[in-house]
Design a protein around this nucleic acid. Sequence first.
DNA 1: GCCAACGTTGGC
DNA 2: GCCAACGTTGGC
Length: 152
Amino acid sequence: MHYWLMKSEPDEFSFEDLQRCRREPWTGVRNYQARNFMRAAELGDIVLFYHSNCATPGIVGLAKISKTAFTDPTQFDKKSDYFDAKSKPDNPRWSCVEVSFLESFPRLVSLEECRQSPALKSLLILRPGNRLSVTPVTAQEFREIKKLGSRK
DNA sequence: GCCAACGTTGGC
DNA sequence: GCCAACGTTGGC
Protein backbone atom coordinates (compact mmCIF):
# COMPACT_ATOMS: atom_id res chain seq x y z
CA MET A 1 0.00 0.00 0.00
CA HIS A 2 1.39 3.35 -1.07
CA TYR A 3 0.28 6.93 -0.77
CA TRP A 4 0.66 9.44 -3.59
CA LEU A 5 0.11 13.12 -3.99
CA MET A 6 -1.19 14.18 -7.39
CA LYS A 7 -1.40 17.76 -8.54
CA SER A 8 -4.05 19.20 -10.76
CA GLU A 9 -4.91 22.71 -11.73
CA PRO A 10 -8.58 23.18 -10.79
CA ASP A 11 -9.09 25.21 -13.98
CA GLU A 12 -8.07 22.12 -15.96
CA PHE A 13 -9.45 19.30 -13.84
CA SER A 14 -10.67 19.89 -10.30
CA PHE A 15 -11.48 17.54 -7.46
CA GLU A 16 -15.12 18.50 -7.94
CA ASP A 17 -14.80 17.29 -11.53
CA LEU A 18 -13.53 13.95 -10.23
CA GLN A 19 -16.37 13.78 -7.72
CA ARG A 20 -18.79 14.28 -10.57
CA CYS A 21 -17.32 11.74 -13.00
CA ARG A 22 -16.15 9.36 -10.22
CA ARG A 23 -13.13 8.05 -12.17
CA GLU A 24 -10.63 9.56 -14.55
CA PRO A 25 -7.56 8.43 -16.49
CA TRP A 26 -4.62 10.51 -15.26
CA THR A 27 -3.25 11.38 -18.68
CA GLY A 28 -0.79 14.03 -19.79
CA VAL A 29 2.06 13.43 -17.35
CA ARG A 30 5.20 14.12 -19.36
CA ASN A 31 7.93 13.80 -16.80
CA TYR A 32 9.90 10.59 -16.42
CA GLN A 33 10.12 10.66 -12.65
CA ALA A 34 6.40 11.25 -12.24
CA ARG A 35 5.73 8.55 -14.83
CA ASN A 36 7.84 6.09 -12.87
CA PHE A 37 5.88 6.82 -9.73
CA MET A 38 2.65 6.11 -11.59
CA ARG A 39 4.09 2.84 -12.85
CA ALA A 40 4.86 1.91 -9.25
CA ALA A 41 1.32 2.64 -8.09
CA GLU A 42 -0.76 -0.37 -7.10
CA LEU A 43 -4.47 -1.04 -7.06
CA GLY A 44 -6.07 0.60 -4.05
CA ASP A 45 -3.19 2.98 -3.32
CA ILE A 46 -4.44 6.23 -1.80
CA VAL A 47 -4.14 9.49 -3.73
CA LEU A 48 -4.00 12.88 -2.05
CA PHE A 49 -5.61 15.27 -4.51
CA TYR A 50 -3.79 18.61 -4.67
CA HIS A 51 -5.01 21.81 -6.30
CA SER A 52 -2.16 23.81 -7.80
CA ASN A 53 -1.93 27.17 -9.53
CA CYS A 54 -4.94 28.60 -7.74
CA ALA A 55 -5.78 31.12 -5.02
CA THR A 56 -5.15 28.72 -2.13
CA PRO A 57 -3.13 25.72 -3.23
CA GLY A 58 -3.54 22.61 -1.08
CA ILE A 59 -4.93 19.13 -0.59
CA VAL A 60 -8.69 18.92 -1.04
CA GLY A 61 -9.51 15.25 -0.64
CA LEU A 62 -8.74 11.62 -1.33
CA ALA A 63 -8.90 9.35 -4.33
CA LYS A 64 -7.58 5.87 -5.02
CA ILE A 65 -5.80 4.07 -7.80
CA SER A 66 -8.53 2.10 -9.58
CA LYS A 67 -6.42 0.97 -12.55
CA THR A 68 -2.66 0.46 -12.55
CA ALA A 69 -0.38 1.92 -15.22
CA PHE A 70 -1.37 1.59 -18.87
CA THR A 71 -0.37 3.37 -22.07
CA ASP A 72 -1.44 7.00 -22.09
CA PRO A 73 -3.43 7.29 -25.34
CA THR A 74 -2.98 11.08 -25.58
CA GLN A 75 0.67 10.69 -26.60
CA PHE A 76 -0.48 9.33 -29.99
CA ASP A 77 -3.31 11.80 -30.48
CA LYS A 78 -2.15 14.52 -32.84
CA LYS A 79 -4.94 16.80 -31.71
CA SER A 80 -4.01 16.46 -28.05
CA ASP A 81 -1.90 19.01 -26.20
CA TYR A 82 0.03 16.01 -24.91
CA PHE A 83 0.90 14.56 -28.30
CA ASP A 84 4.47 13.28 -28.39
CA ALA A 85 5.85 12.74 -31.89
CA LYS A 86 8.85 10.91 -30.50
CA SER A 87 6.81 8.21 -28.80
CA LYS A 88 6.38 5.07 -30.90
CA PRO A 89 3.30 2.84 -30.57
CA ASP A 90 5.52 -0.27 -30.32
CA ASN A 91 7.43 1.35 -27.46
CA PRO A 92 5.23 3.92 -25.75
CA ARG A 93 6.97 6.46 -23.56
CA TRP A 94 4.15 7.59 -21.32
CA SER A 95 1.83 5.83 -18.96
CA CYS A 96 -1.19 6.84 -16.97
CA VAL A 97 -3.26 5.39 -14.16
CA GLU A 98 -6.96 5.63 -13.44
CA VAL A 99 -7.98 7.39 -10.24
CA SER A 100 -11.37 7.16 -8.54
CA PHE A 101 -13.04 9.54 -6.14
CA LEU A 102 -12.95 8.53 -2.48
CA GLU A 103 -13.78 11.39 -0.16
CA SER A 104 -13.75 15.14 0.05
CA PHE A 105 -12.03 16.69 3.09
CA PRO A 106 -14.32 18.77 5.35
CA ARG A 107 -11.64 21.44 5.02
CA LEU A 108 -8.76 22.27 2.71
CA VAL A 109 -5.26 21.46 3.92
CA SER A 110 -3.40 24.40 2.44
CA LEU A 111 0.20 24.34 1.30
CA GLU A 112 0.89 27.04 3.86
CA GLU A 113 -0.51 24.83 6.62
CA CYS A 114 1.62 21.90 5.49
CA ARG A 115 4.64 24.15 5.72
CA GLN A 116 3.72 25.05 9.32
CA SER A 117 3.36 21.43 10.43
CA PRO A 118 6.50 19.84 11.94
CA ALA A 119 5.13 16.39 11.04
CA LEU A 120 5.17 17.36 7.36
CA LYS A 121 8.69 18.76 7.21
CA SER A 122 9.83 16.15 4.72
CA LEU A 123 6.80 16.34 2.43
CA LEU A 124 8.19 16.41 -1.09
CA ILE A 125 6.00 19.20 -2.42
CA LEU A 126 7.49 21.50 0.23
CA ARG A 127 10.96 21.13 -1.25
CA PRO A 128 12.04 24.25 -3.09
CA GLY A 129 11.36 24.02 -6.77
CA ASN A 130 9.59 20.69 -6.63
CA ARG A 131 7.55 20.50 -9.78
CA LEU A 132 6.66 16.83 -9.94
CA SER A 133 2.96 16.27 -10.52
CA VAL A 134 3.06 12.86 -8.84
CA THR A 135 5.02 12.31 -5.63
CA PRO A 136 5.09 9.61 -2.95
CA VAL A 137 3.81 10.42 0.54
CA THR A 138 4.71 8.41 3.65
CA ALA A 139 2.09 6.73 5.84
CA GLN A 140 2.93 9.16 8.67
CA GLU A 141 2.53 12.16 6.38
CA PHE A 142 -0.74 10.76 5.12
CA ARG A 143 -2.10 10.35 8.64
CA GLU A 144 -1.14 13.90 9.52
CA ILE A 145 -2.73 15.39 6.40
CA LYS A 146 -5.88 13.36 6.91
CA LYS A 147 -6.05 14.56 10.50
CA LEU A 148 -5.70 18.19 9.40
CA GLY A 149 -8.27 17.73 6.66
CA SER A 150 -10.79 16.19 9.05
CA ARG A 151 -10.44 18.85 11.72
CA LYS A 152 -13.41 21.11 12.22
C1' DG B 1 2.64 38.95 -14.35
C1' DC B 2 7.07 37.85 -12.09
C1' DC B 3 10.58 34.78 -11.38
C1' DA B 4 13.12 30.80 -9.20
C1' DA B 5 13.95 26.19 -9.99
C1' DC B 6 13.95 22.85 -12.63
C1' DG B 7 13.92 19.38 -16.92
C1' DT B 8 14.90 19.01 -21.79
C1' DT B 9 17.12 19.90 -26.03
C1' DG B 10 20.68 20.11 -29.24
C1' DG B 11 25.16 21.93 -30.89
C1' DC B 12 29.71 20.87 -30.32
C1' DG C 1 29.15 14.01 -22.42
C1' DC C 2 29.11 18.99 -21.49
C1' DC C 3 26.46 22.97 -21.04
C1' DA C 4 23.92 27.09 -22.70
C1' DA C 5 19.51 28.17 -24.19
C1' DC C 6 14.97 27.42 -23.77
C1' DG C 7 10.44 25.97 -21.99
C1' DT C 8 7.57 24.83 -18.07
C1' DT C 9 5.79 24.74 -13.42
C1' DG C 10 3.64 26.88 -9.83
C1' DG C 11 3.83 29.93 -5.65
C1' DC C 12 3.33 34.50 -4.83
